[in-house]
Every structure is written in structure tokens, then in C-alpha cells.
């Protein structure tokens, strides 16, 4: 599967500094001044570049700046090119969540809960998907910018109090390899470890629990789904509204109504499920299925 291969390559590429895992320290090369598109903690021992959320908080929390043109510009450029394709293909923490969910689908007692949760998520009128926007505004922007100490420095609040990616991919390996860090563990690590465990538990029952409800980076990229170069195209003439696409969507999107919903992570499951060639995904607006004469290309019978 191409998507899974790209996800693994991204995970390994973003964390390619292997000596860090053995020595219990992080990479300090010049690449660290550049952000990767996905959520990948820059304190992970293998990380060769920076996390956009951490970088944004670092700049906002410094005494010199009250806005980060550099990081916001990079995030806008990523969003305009890819939208939430980044979540589906280029986010290392997204892959970890999918692996956790896949593992849980093999546990028989969780299968019923997964199906029940999927139905509940689709039926909710007010869905907790908006929590990630609130977390972004409060913890990524407001607290680092406004809650400063006497020297004018703000803590990276999202990284410090919430981010499970930092705890799992940076904290756990560093503490395992570095005894002096283990001695410094306190209540904050207990809090963060609790959030990380709760996130993993959430991922067992809900597909991409963190992406759906908690990730401010995904929320930001979702705003660009409607204008991003990579997009989902719906050929309405071919759509028979059979519902196959919305049934397979694990992000609770109905692609036949909102193909470029902010929640769509571009996994492509709906495109594969559509037997009428009504959906396609790609990097431009110009190619259209109506080039086929608008007659539609049937690949099977409607259910």
C-alpha cells in the first residue's frame, strides 16, 4: 500500500539520526531550523528537523517576537500545497495512531466498541472535533504569547502540558537511554504520561483519536483543504449517492457532500470504495472526470 509506505518513509526520514536513540541525546545540526510538515517532536532523539507547532510556540514565547512570520508562512505553504494530505501521508504521529488502532482491531473485545464509536461520531450534531481549534488558540498561541515570566519568556504550553507525541517519541526514549534525565522526572511527566496513555487508549477505540479531536496542526491544515492544490474531486454526474464513500470514511466525512471537508485526511479510502468513478484525488483542479465525456466510468453495480 503506497500510503503506508510513504508514512513509514516519512517517519524514518524525519527521525533519521539513529545515534540519538542509543546515546540518549538529540541532533543539533542546521536542519533543525527547518520545520517538517507533520507532528514530529524536535526533542525526539532521532529528529533531524523541527516540529511546526513547537517552533511556533518557541518564537511566540521568546521575548523578541510577538508573531512568527517564518513558521506561519511555512505552515501556510504546506497547507496550500497539501492540506490535510499531510495528516494522512506525512505525519509520523498519525502513523503511530493508525498502528495502535490497527492493533486494537485485532483485539476482539474492542471491535464492537470501534463500530459503535464510528456510528456515534457520525450522528453527533456537535462533535468534539472543535476542541482542537480551541487547544490551538489557547495552548499554541495565547499562553506562550501572554503567560510570560519576568524575562518576557513564555512556555510552549501545548508541548509542556498536552502533546502526547513529545511524551511518546521524545520523553520515553530519552528517559530510557539517559539516567540523568530519569532523576529529574516529576509531576509534569506523570501528567503528560497520563495524557499520552489516554490518547493511546483513545486510539484503540477511535481511529486517529488525536487527529480528530486534539491536534491543532491538523486543525490548521484543515482550513486549507478547500483551496489546497491536492484535493478530492467529486464528479456529481457520476455520483448515485449510494453512501459507499461515507460508510468507509473513518474520519466521519461524507465525501459526496463535502469532498474537501476540513476533517478529510486524504487517505483515499472513499476513492477506492466508489464504484462509479465519482471521486478522484490529485494535485490539480484542471484534470476532470468530465474529460471522459461525462458519461461516467462504471466499475461495478450500485449496491
Amino acid at each position: 500500500m503506497i500510503r503506508r509506505a510513504v508514512q513509514w518513509l516519512t517517519l524514518l526520514g524525519c527521525n533519521a539520526w539513529w545515534p540519538g536513540f542509543i546515546e540518549g541525546r538529540i541532533y543539533g545540526g542546521k536542519l533543525k531550523s527547518v520545520c517538517v510538515p507533520g507532528l514530529n517532536c524536535y526533542s525526539c532523539p532521532g529528529a533531524v528537523a523541527s516540529c511546526p507547532l513547537g517552533s511556533l510556540q518557541a518564537v511566540l514565547g521568546s521575548w523578541r517576537y510577538s508573531f512568527s512570520f517564518y513558521v506561519v508562512g511555512l505552515m501556510m505553504a504546506f497547507g496550500l500545497l497539501f492540506g490535510r494530505f499531510i495528516c494522512g501521508f506525512l505525519c509520523p504521529f498519525g502513523l503511530l495512531q493508525e498502528l495502535a488502532h490497527k492493533l486494537s482491531s485485532r483485539l476482539s473485545f474492542l471491535r464492537g466498541k470501534q463500530a459503535k464509536q464510528a456510528n456515534q461520531t457520525k450522528n453527533l450534531r456537535w462533535r468534539p472535533i472543535y476542541v482542537k481549534y480551541i487547544l490551538g488558540v489557547v495552548f499554541v498561541v495565547a499562553l506562550p504569547l501572554l503567560a510570560t515570566n519576568s524575562m518576557g519568556l513564555g512556555d510552549p504550553a501545548f508541548c509542556k502540558y498536552i502533546c502526547p507525541a513529545g511524551t511518546l517519541t521524545a520523553g520515553a526514549p530519552l528517559l530510557a537511554a539517559n539516567p540523568s534525565l530519569r532523576d529529574a522526572v516529576g509531576w509534569l511527566f506523570v501528567l503528560k504520561a497520563g495524557i499520552a496513555v489516554a490518547t493511546l487508549a483513545g486510539c484503540l477505540a477511535i481511529y486517529r483519536f488525536f487527529c480528530k479531536y486534539l491536534c491543532p496542526l491538523g486543525a490548521f491544515y484543515g482550513l486549507f483543504n478547500k483551496v489546497a492544490v491536492y484535493r478530492l474531486r467529486l464528479e456529481e454526474g457520476n455520483c448515485v449517492h449510494c453512501g459507499a464513500c461515507s460508510r468507509v470514511c473513518k474520519m466521519a466525512v461524507d465525501p459526496s457532500r463535502t469532498p474537501n471537508s476540513p476533517e478529510c485526511i486524504r487517505c483515499g479510502d472513499c476513492v477506492r470504495a466508489c464504484r462509479f468513478s465519482a471521486l478522484s484525488a490529485g494535485f490539480s483542479d484542471w484534470r476532470r472526470t468530465s474529460e471522459n465525456g461525462g458519461s461516467g466510468v462504471l466499475r461495478g453495480k450500485a449496491p
Binding site: Y42, S43, S50, G54, G166, G186
Partner: peptide, 15 residues
């Protein structure tokens, strides 16, 4: 960004 990312972020790790 570089200074923050090239040095261990104790907040990110949870310390």
C-alpha cells in the same frame, strides 16, 4: 527556532 530545536526541550519531554 534552531536554538529551541537543537537543544533538549525539557517541556516537550515532560520534565
Amino acid at each position: 527556532v534552531f536554538v529551541r530545536a537543537a537543544n533538549l526541550c525539557l517541556e516537550c519531554v515532560g520534565i
